[in-house]
Design a protein around this nucleic acid. Sequence first.
DNA 1: GTGAAAGCGCTAACAA
DNA 2: TTGTTAGCGCTTTCAC
Lengths: 335, 335
Amino acid sequence: MAALAGVSQSAVSRAFTPGSSIAEAKRQRILEAARRLNYVPNSIASSLTTKRTNIVAVILGNLANPFYVEVLRTFIARLQAQGRQILTFTVDNGADSDEAILRVLRYQVDGVILTSAQLSTRMTSICHDRGIPIVLFNRYIPGSDASGVRCDNTGGGRLMAEAFLAAGARSFAMIKGDPKGTTSQDRVRGFTERLIEAGIARADIGEIEGQSTYDGAFNAVLGAYRRKPERLPDAIFGINDIMAMGAMDALRQRMGLKIPDDVMIGGFDDIPESRRHPYQLTTVRQPVGLMVDEALSILHLDEPAQPIEMGIDRQVPGRLIWRSTIPTPTASSED
Amino acid sequence: MAALAGVSQSAVSRAFTPGSSIAEAKRQRILEAARRLNYVPNSIASSLTTKRTNIVAVILGNLANPFYVEVLRTFIARLQAQGRQILTFTVDNGADSDEAILRVLRYQVDGVILTSAQLSTRMTSICHDRGIPIVLFNRYIPGSDASGVRCDNTGGGRLMAEAFLAAGARSFAMIKGDPKGTTSQDRVRGFTERLIEAGIARADIGEIEGQSTYDGAFNAVLGAYRRKPERLPDAIFGINDIMAMGAMDALRQRMGLKIPDDVMIGGFDDIPESRRHPYQLTTVRQPVGLMVDEALSILHLDEPAQPIEMGIDRQVPGRLIWRSTIPTPTASSED
DNA sequence: GTGAAAGCGCTAACAA
DNA sequence: TTGTTAGCGCTTTCAC
């Protein structure tokens, strides 16, 4: 390219580097030649010297949960607007992410965002040793010095418990997700704690496993209550919206029950589907945009020289969105 | 790394290159040292010489349509299994993809997959000149020599027309998507053609604009029929499932209609949500896995030396999935 | 099977 | 403001 345009290599480099000292006329001339020759600078080559690729890795669990689609979409939107590229990886839900991380490290990514996967301490230190920041999204790994952002899951669980209590529920069940994940655990814990505080007996708080999926919850509900409808509690808390939706469909379409008349339902996440007519799910909203911004700020991609922030565990509060799967005690508030 | 392990640079390179001539003992020794030193080969550097990055770009429209989430997920699964990385890009639905393509070209991707976006001939030739194959997914650009894979949308539209006709419908409406996209156009055309052939009058085939989204279709249906229920046709064809779902919700929850008793509904895509209880949508299934495989075969990532396949327009047939939004004339067949 | 040396396309001093 | 030079971390001849 340089030769063809009759200028030095450095001139070309400068022409494509905003803020570098080059005469405006020359820059224009080079840009014009580049267009004519269909020249596109090679970012791969430049990152070899700059040590910056402008690539960020996003490692996700299964995209079957629309919540994570929303998360991915938000990360893509933000990063793309900053001129960064996204290397997307999926790993099986809850599986360990070692292989994925090793692979993205080969590509010298500027940062790693990890959702729905385990992170070994070995990988954490490998990343940190190489100066690559890593942030956990909606996940907390006890004992890890990796930083992360998550919703206040415990608090969110409490909010849901309060909503049910206010509506008069006295017996409960939870549909849990990945039993190893802190996200599900925390929501379960907050929910349970609040109920106990309100004087509910442990025996009146049931738990079933929904595997974090629509089908899992659908089948779990059928398995638990279809033949024993007498066991049905007043209220069921789906640890995430997609499971709450599976539960609703099983309850209504397969068992002929009315929601919230026969059983109340609560969810968590506030995915777009939750507000749709068939569901109108009362749920705890996670502020995805805010959480994404927090995650990116922990990565501080713009100041690579800054030391990596370790051990941060940023929690942002969720918010209860009243819709129609729990009778509203007083006034209702759709957003 | 080489120095630290007391071997040559080349030896390290060979140790990490399957099939290169190196003594097994030496390879093991190097691999062991690498592990100890947390060494990870730099793919960025290697691609500078090999001219292969093992990165494939996937450019998508909005992820609000679950169909494209499914598509993305499938591409990720396949490519990841092949040891390739995915650079994900989103562009506004139907917007041109020039900027996105220029950006991925800087990263020397081995191939480009493009869905839901326009592709200029200039970009096509830039890619081809540099030997980068590009494949259109579910999109056909007339006059372009870019290759692509798509469902037989015209045929799918015909299938839906036949289903409605068999169920006795005599008046129709379509909820169209992006008016500039061939995908929507083809489905509309096939549907209309078949109806005309069956003797339906043009006046009995209405069209409304659903903007390819749930909300768009929801509102369009309300706008078209709420105050004029007498205009309601026997059958409504949502050009994609997400719009069919929006239409169903509007019809049932806002207008109190029964499906299929008061109005039949058909969709296209067969997204996972379509089989769920609230919808049980009769739709035309796109064989995503097959289409993805076809797309990847057109890219022939494994034989970069082969000339780029141009002008291919591979069409795979869709299949009608009978569920419950159209009364089945005779026997029904869930997949 | 192995190492030395050249070079991939760029950026970053440095000197002019 | 400009061009020259020396690498960035790897792969690839090419001798050995």
